[in-house]
């Protein structure tokens, strides 16, 4: 099943790769490019959310930092795009490191709040600084080649997907992260340093996100705090990942495709789009948490694996109860000692 995923992914990339040969409609290319970008944002969000169990509401900030770094280097320092993009990757990595060291010590909900607050702070910063252009944003040198951006986005996102697949599903790294997600304290006794692993995951999730932000900036040629640094980027990535299935990499791809298609169609047919869309996003996340706790892909996968599964579970449960019962009548001496010691009510 694992190698099947790789086969299907390679096929999907190849099929997408020939699309520009047959489709010259800029609108279609644009939609596809953006869909691919959202796949990238969803799978990078999943690194932290799905594999370590931390919800990063600063994910959008990494995207924005990448976008702004690219814009600033290109506009203010006249760097060429590729060098500016490398700078974006580097700056995002450093920001992740600096933000991760204090916040990843926090548990679950506190981490979510801290990253959300940090991303708001960064948005405010972009609004007041002159180097970022303040609320007016920045205009980048236009480079209007939809095919170039399509291939760039496809290349970066598929490279990211295969890298993450290797690291998280093949290499020891992914299992170590899962161990931390399942039991952070217990994992420590097995030689795992949770803080270090979480920071590695955080940086791994941030770098491609920053690169995507940089590509987005150059592609759209205009960025401002509202478009690249608002909560919406993190929120959408979250919905895609939760709806598709956390901790699977495949689920987020499916989630991104479905949510993005939905958004695109919705955009075309409804006028007061913004507000309704947010309400629907909220509803999707609430419903999938309640009815699809493993997301679409998680549910499908469990169905496939289930054949005869639940019966077995029942069996082991009843055997468990039996073992517990037996344990009560174990060694006579122990029972005696327990009885003596239990009268003072400890435990």
């Amino acid at each position: 099943m694992r190698s099947k995923v790789i086969t299907w992914s390679v096929l999907a990339v190849l099929v997408l790769g020939v699309v520009p040969l047959f489709v010259s409609d800029t609108f279609v290319l644009r939609i596809l490019t953006e869909a691919i970008m959202w796949i990238g944002l969803a799978i990078t969000f999943d690194v932290l959310a799905g594999y370590t169990g931390y919800l990063n509401f600063g994910h959008g900030a990494f995207f924005g930092i990448g976008a702004y770094t690219t814009a600033i280097m290109m506009v203010r320092a006249n760097w060429p795009f590729t060098t500016a993009l490398l700078a974006a990757a580097l700056v995002t990595a450093i920001c992740a490191l600096v933000a991760g060291i204090p916040t990843l010590r926090l548990r679950g909900a506190y981490f979510a709040i801290a990253t959300w607050a940090l991303s708001l702070a960064i948005q405010q910063l972009a609004l007041i600084l002159t180097i970022t252009g303040g609320p007016d944003g920045m205009r980048l040198p236009p480079f209007l080649d939809p095919v170039y951006f399509f291939y760039l986005m496809l290349g970066v996102v598929s490279a990211t997907f295969f890298l993450l697949w290797y690291l998280l599903e093949r290499a020891p790294f992914g299992l170590k992260l899962k161990a931390i997600r399942e039991d952070e304290l217990g994992a420590q006794s097995l030689g795992l340093n949770p803080t270090r692993l979480k920071i590695q995951a955080f940086v791994l999730s941030a770098i491609p996100t920053g690169i995507l932000g940089g590509i987005y900036a150059y592609w759209i040629t205009f960025i401002d705090p509202a478009s690249t640094l608002s909560d919406l980027v993190s929120d959408q990535a979250l919905v895609m990942v939760v709806f598709g299935g956390m901790g699977t990499l495949i689920g987020p791809v499916i989630g991104a495709l479905l949510i993005f298609s939905f958004k695109t169609i919705f955009w075309a047919y409804l006028s007061n789009f913004q507000l309704l869309y947010l309400i629907i996003l909220g509803a999707v996340i609430a419903l999938s948490v309640v009815f699809l706790p493993n997301g679409l892909w998680g549910t499908i996968r469990n169905r496939k694996n289930r054949r005869g599964g639940p019966k077995k579970n029942q069996e082991s449960l009843s055997r468990d109860a039996e073992a517990d019962k037996k344990s009560e009548t174990k060694s006579a001496l122990a029972a005696e000692l327990k009885a003596c010691t239990q009268k003072d009510g400890v435990k």
């Binding site: 290499a171 020891p172 299992l175 170590k176 899962k178 399942e182 039991d183 217990g186 030689g191």
Partner: peptide, 28 residues
């Protein structure tokens, strides 16, 4: 070991032991 056992519940038995094995055997 822990008195209140600490398996990684979402992972298989093999994966549980595998995670501990990485300490001495870093290659998968």
């Amino acid at each position: 070991t822990f008195q209140v056992v600490k398996p990684f519940p979402g992972l298989s038995v093999l994966e549980n032991v595998l995670i501990a094995s990485f300490l001495r055997y870093p290659k998968r």
